[in-house]
């Protein structure tokens, strides 16, 4: 009994317990579905659920150990996302070595996050890398395709490193409740919950497509169902995991769901332009890392700034 009691001792532990509860429920449902209506759809669903077990377990270990471990884990996710992006886009051979600098931006950015150097964190990629990379590309001496190379690299670094690194910055918050880990768990759990809820509502009730040219499976029913479910879930768990009272939590849930949706379709548009369905096949049933963190790319900065604006406890450093 003591072990169980200790496990639920903190809000973060309790929330992870609930997540595993949902996972067990989801596993049971897919197993029943597989018996009732076997087919490619349920097979795909089973693969996805198995991958969820892996992802949630790795994430749990990452956030329950030391903050440094969590930050290194998040930096690694960012690395996988950037690698996937760079492997998909057209690249000029002359820029091969420039990419080293783009990769090196990851340890720097996550170091600033870990040290809580918010000022440097906020300008390092949007200002310093933004100015440096085109100059470095120029030194390669080839002007043919220059603009495209600069544009593709800058955008990729912004979405896969700058945006995603906000997850690590959340960890530096020292709130009472769940601390930085609570804030991160709130963001990631709700972003992923919103994806699953949109998928589920879309599949059960979906009729009216939103933007069929970009993402044919996205429907108004899925979008509204997902956003409602996420907002309600946020209102329920926010007061425990974060310093936000329920009404702030509800708004946070609404913003995370909306931003997550935009991230999802933006990465879809990107993949569609590149004529690929999935960014890779790293995670069975899900696709690549980019397919899994697409919503987080938008929801992470939005949630960080929301939380920081209303509840940030930074010393008054100019940003």
């Amino acid at each position: 009994m003591n072990v169980i009691a200790a496990f639920f001792a903190t809000p973060v532990h309790a929330a992870i317990g609930i997540i595993y509860g949902i996972l067990i429920f989801g596993t049971a449902v897919t197993q029943i579905l597989r018996r009732v209506s076997p087919g490619p759809m349920t097979q795909e669903l089973t693969k996805r659920v198995v991958s969820w077990w892996w992802m949630i377990t790795v994430f749990t270990i990452a956030i329950l150990t030391y903050r440094m471990v969590s930050t290194i884990f998040l930096a690694f996710v960012s690395f996988l996302a950037l690698k996937e992006y760079l492997s998909l886009i057209p690249t000029r051979r002359v820029d091969r070595r420039v990419l080293i600098w783009a990769y090196l931006a990851i340890p720097a950015q996550f170091y600033f996050a870990h040290m809580g150097q918010v000022g440097l964190f906020m300008v390092f990629i949007p200002v310093w890398m933004f100015l440096f990379l085109p100059a470095r590309i120029t030194l390669g001496g080839h002007t043919e395709g220059f603009l495209r190379a600069v544009g593709l690299l800058s955008w990729g670094l912004m979405i896969t490193v700058f945006s995603l690194s906000h997850t690590a910055l959340l960890l530096t918050f020292s709130f009472n409740h769940g601390g930085g880990a609570g804030a991160l768990l709130f963001l990631v759990a709700l972003t992923q919950f919103n994806d699953v809820a949109q998928f589920t509502f879309g599949n059960l009730l979906g009729r009216h497509k939103i933007i069929p040219k970009v993402s044919p499976n996205k429907t108004w029913e899925g979008f509204l169902g997902g956003i409602t479910a996420t907002t309600v879930a946020a209102g329920l768990i926010g007061p425990y995991l974060t310093p936000m009272p329920w009404h702030y939590s509800v708004l946070a849930g609404f913003l995370i769901a909306g931003a997550g949706y935009l991230g999802d379709i933006t990465i879809s548009a990107c993949k569609r332009d590149l004529h690929v369905k999935d960014a890779s096949n790293l995670i069975p049933g899900h696709g690549g890392i980019l397919d899994r963190v697409d919503s987080l790319i938008y929801s992470a900065p939005v949630f960080f700034h929301y939380l920081n604006y209303f509840f940030g406890n930074w010393p008054a450093t100019p940003l």
């Binding site: 690395f79 690698k83 996937e84 760079l86 492997s87 690249t91 091969r96 070595r97 990419l99 080293i100 990769y103 890779s280």
Partner: peptide
């Protein structure tokens, strides 16, 4: 595919790419 981008002929600088 992709390994020739990560480590082509005449270099020992390995750049990460999915293959």
């Amino acid at each position: 595919h992709g390994l020739g981008k990560a480590l082509p002929k005449d270099t020992w600088v390995l750049i990460p790419f999915n293959c």
